[in-house]
């Protein structure tokens, strides 16, 4: 091998050039803009502006929607993963479910919205079927284009994602632990409460945060389902970029920064919890 020359940094120049131009500089531009007044002076007014009622309501709606969809996704995904990994299903079925989840976790966006409109929209298959059985979903207050309708739609990619990311942790539960607990007289519930749950808790919580972040950035599915009536933060930002609906460009930057901050916090917590969880998987 040649000795390291002073010119070897030239080899990574394209990388740093590209990421500086198209990733780091644009993001810095937004972040700086979030702390500038329209005249160019430094200010915290934009960040404070995020607490204005309509913007705060958007953040709150986004957070609630992401929490609900992450929670439902975590619980159902965990149940399904438990059934698949520890439930004694035949191996072909296990493989089929895992493969399907790989596809479904990537099947988001507009086509997913279309499939759900055909299922639970006003003229959807299930809606019509239940109506003929005397159960009128829309008369009962359900709507696909509402909070819980969106949550149900998100579940289509959240549950599979949960299964994929939690499977290694479930496989890491050693049979010896269960045997040891049983030989000491523990029943199934005690084993899960005292051994299984504490070992799995960091992984499950970490995956929950991953699902939260996954839902938080979702834009296309909502637009296809609700137009732009459902004003979560990504939709608000989308409209701001389109037509400056906030009447203040710098407030738009603050909105973008707020989104990124929520993503950063949930991802950092996810990484910290994953590191904690890996102690058991050696």
């Amino acid at each position: 091998m040649q000795p390291i020359s002073r010119m070897s940094w030239l080899g990574v120049l394209p990388w740093f050039g590209f990421t500086l131009l198209f990733l780091i500089a644009p993001m810095s531009y937004l972040i700086l803009g979030a702390f500038q007044s329209p005249e160019g002076g430094l200010t915290l007014a934009n960040m404070a502006g995020l607490s204005a009622p309509d913007i705060a309501a958007s953040f709150w709606l986004s957070i609630r929607l992401s929490l609900a969809s992450a929670l439902v996704g975590t619980v159902t995904g965990l149940l399904l993963a438990h059934a698949v990994v520890l439930g004694g299903l035949p191996i072909w079925l296990r493989r089929a479910i895992t493969a399907f989840c790989g596809v479904a976790s990537n099947f988001a966006g507009v086509p997913l919205a279309f499939a759900f409109i055909a299922t639970l929209g006003r003229l959807g298959l299930v809606t019509v079927l239940l109506k003929s059985l005397g159960l009128d979903l829309y008369a009962m207050g359900f709507s696909l284009f509402s909070f819980w309708g969106l949550t149900l739609t998100y579940l289509y990619f959240q549950m599979p994602l949960m299964l994929l990311v939690i499977t290694p942790a479930l496989e890491g539960l050693r049979p010896e632990w269960r045997e040891a607990a049983e030989s000491l007289g523990a029943d199934g519930a005690q084993y899960w409460l005292r051994v299984g749950a504490p070992v799995l808790a960091p992984s499950v919580l970490g995956c929950f945060l991953l699902l939260f972040a996954n839902a938080f950035g979702t834009l296309a599915t909502i637009i296809a389902l609700t137009g732009s009536n459902f004003s979560v933060v990504p939709i608000l930002l989308f409209q701001q970029i389109r037509g400056n609906v906030l009447y203040n460009p710098n407030l738009g930057y603050a909105l973008a920064l707020g989104m990124v901050l929520i993503m950063v916090v949930s991802n950092l917590l996810y990484l910290a919890l994953r590191a904690r969880a890996e102690r058991w998987q050696k």
Partner: peptide
């Protein structure tokens, strides 16, 4: 450093990224 930069897009929603591009 390189790996960290490569992971950054995971925490930047695409709507934020394109916002930066349009302004930049």
């Amino acid at each position: 450093v390189v790996e960290f930069i490569s992971l950054l897009p995971l925490i930047i929603p695409s709507v934020v990224l394109v916002f930066g591009h349009i302004r930049m």
